[in-house]
Design a protein around this nucleic acid. Structure first.
Lengths: 335, 335
DNA sequence: TCCAAAAGTGGGATCGGTTCCATTTTTGAC
DNA sequence: GTCAAAAATGGAACCGATCCCACTTTTGGA
């Protein structure tokens, strides 16, 4: 493989000139530029990215930490991030902490990114205590958090107003006449799950239809977690005309199980999801849900990370509002 | 940030000794090892990965090229690959060619990986002509292809026997008594889509129930492609008691649309998918499908790539067999 | 034509590891 | 206690860029 100095020699110029020509910084005369271009062509030269990184002290690598890669949620995030990064000529490396057993393990995944000398890091976490992000964020200024909000990290957290989301859910169901409403939540130790849940309960109460405790099932945002929560709900004996699910995956599992039992949706029970992931138009019936602008949030987080890391000035926004998205899985209460 | 030489100085040993201690190659006395460990601890030393890469001429980066990141298929692949790579201390960088407009664009995405000095590259492509992989593979010995089979690249292509898959589909439907069977295919320019389609048609014919041309819709393996293919099928006026869909995404779209129209699955029409992605147990009704061992294939491809690239000896297998996975979306023909 | 400012240039030092090699130290069989 | 083989060691050269700086050339206004 030809090196920059080979190019310089062949072109009959100094190595600095070639470097300047390639990186586009500094000035190079027309004549030199042509000679260099020719030499590059002739030698089939390609700059060595490691040497470049070492000497410029920038890896052009952005680390992305996700707690899981199951289901469409994080996929949508990664898809959005990858495309933003590519636009800026950066590369994403991924750490999926899904198989981590302990908190220590989870941090080890973060170290896996840091040890790789990422220029910046995107963390998608809704966990609070478990994972002392703040401590990391302090050591690592180019770290930004998606789907979480803390004041200590102002300007570096990107979030959706799940309080509003929870309330929109409650209002929608109540407007349809549902008074006996059940809910399956995510793990309540996660900020996003708790927030929407608490707001949902509060809004239901405010609207005069408090949710009875036996109608609340704490689940988890995974297919398996959804399955057991759904089973718990269906065997609990609780009665309800609508179920608000903490995310779309759980709603999908619930619809499938109700179908299996011959329960009609929304005829017998209305189902409302949350997130509005990729597949929501294609459940049967199509899932009514709270649209969370996951991709916009991810892109914003990415932009701001790039700004912090490379001194760019890309547009971004820290907080986003969810909106109601009515499809076919919710309907008027038939009581 | 402390450097290796700082560590050496503090520990009172030579830089070579520290290097050997860290990388675990070569021998270091107990006594030196302890002094070095202490110095590392004290200086909070972390090796610089770029310097390491430059001098060892290995980036520990594996590039992964995918044609799209929509839907669960490629995500399952990436999830499997990421976990294998992490096990070996390697990092994945991703190029999603989904937004590529032209063939040139697609190749540019590959170059994006190559320019990054990836040690090895995994390409997931089922496209034949469009994308002259062979030429790249020649220049780049550490390149391996997932979900494609070519003899020129023997030992470096990993595939599923979609011929068998197509036949299993036909047999299942015929065994259930279906004689009027429709099918929605993927783009037939893709090897995997064509293979299963051709085999399906052939097997149907062999079983005495050739598929009439008006019951064949060429679609694409995306939600949007699924939607238009489904619309085409439903407005075509063709009659059928079962539909074989080229992948699960399309099957899901079809189930949703049939639900909307009040058509019962499998009561009125049986639906058979292909791939057995993540969500198949959770459609309503749960999707019968041809299970394609995507994750195993991805892991094998990854293993072999690591073998080629780093001289490892991980177990792998080049070709995989699909199997029938019966759930609730297929049932006996009621004619 | 002159001259200061601007543009362009070459090459050496540097980034922080790995690797090689000549040299020293340790080991253990006799 | 001797000595050859094995283990351990230090340091210089190297990987291939970037970046700085002192120097030369070009530019254009007076």
């Amino acid at each position: 493989m030809a090196t920059l100095r080979d190019v310089a020699k062949l072109a009959g110029v100094g190595s600095g000139t070639v470097s300047r020509h390639i990186s586009g910084t500094g000035s190079v005369s027309q004549k030199s530029a042509e000679k260099i271009a020719r030499a590059i062509e002739q030698l089939n030269y390609r700059p060595n990215s490691m040497a470049r990184s070492l000497s410029s002290r920038r890896s052009d690598l952005i680390g992305v930490w996700v707690p899981s890669l199951e289901g469409p949620y994080y996929h949508m995030m990664i898809r959005a991030i990858e495309s933003e990064l590519r636009l800026q000529g950066k590369h994403m490396i991924l750490a999926n902490a899904e198989d981590a057993q302990s908190n220590e393990d989870r941090l080890a995944h973060l170290d896996y990114l840091i040890n790789r000398d990422c220029d910046g890091i995107l963390v998608s976490s809704s966990l609070q205590s478990e994972f002392e992000l703040a401590r990391y964020a302090e050591k690592f200024p180019n770290l930004v958090v998606i789907n979480h909000r803390t004041d200590e990290l102002a300007g570096r957290t990107f979030s959706i107003d799940h309080d509003l989301g929870g309330r929109l859910a409650a209002r929608h169901l109540v407007e349809l006449g549902h008074t006996r409403v059940a809910t399956i939540t995510g793990r309540l130790s996660a900020q996003d799950a708790r927030q929407r849940h608490v707001a949902f309960l509060d809004e239901m109460e405010r609207l005069g239809h408090p949710v009875a405790p036996e109608r609340i099932i704490e689940g988890a945002f995974s297919y398996a977690g959804g399955e057991s929560a759904v089973a718990a709900l269906l065997t609990s004996g609780a009665d309800y005309s609508a179920v608000f699910c903490g995310n779309d995956k759980v709603a999908m599992v619930l619809i499938a199980e109700l179908h299996r039992r011959g329960v009609s949706v929304p005829g017998d029970v209305s189902i409302l999801g949350y997130d509005d992931v990729e597949f929501t138009p294609f459940t049967a019936p199509a899932l009514s849900t709270i649209h969370a602008p996951i991709e916009e949030m991810s892109r914003s987080a990415c932009h701001q990370l790039l700004n912090l890391t490379y001194g760019l000035d890309l547009p971004y926004q820290e907080h986003f509002e969810p909106s109601l998205c009515v499809r076919q899985s919710t309907g008027p209460s038939c009581q």
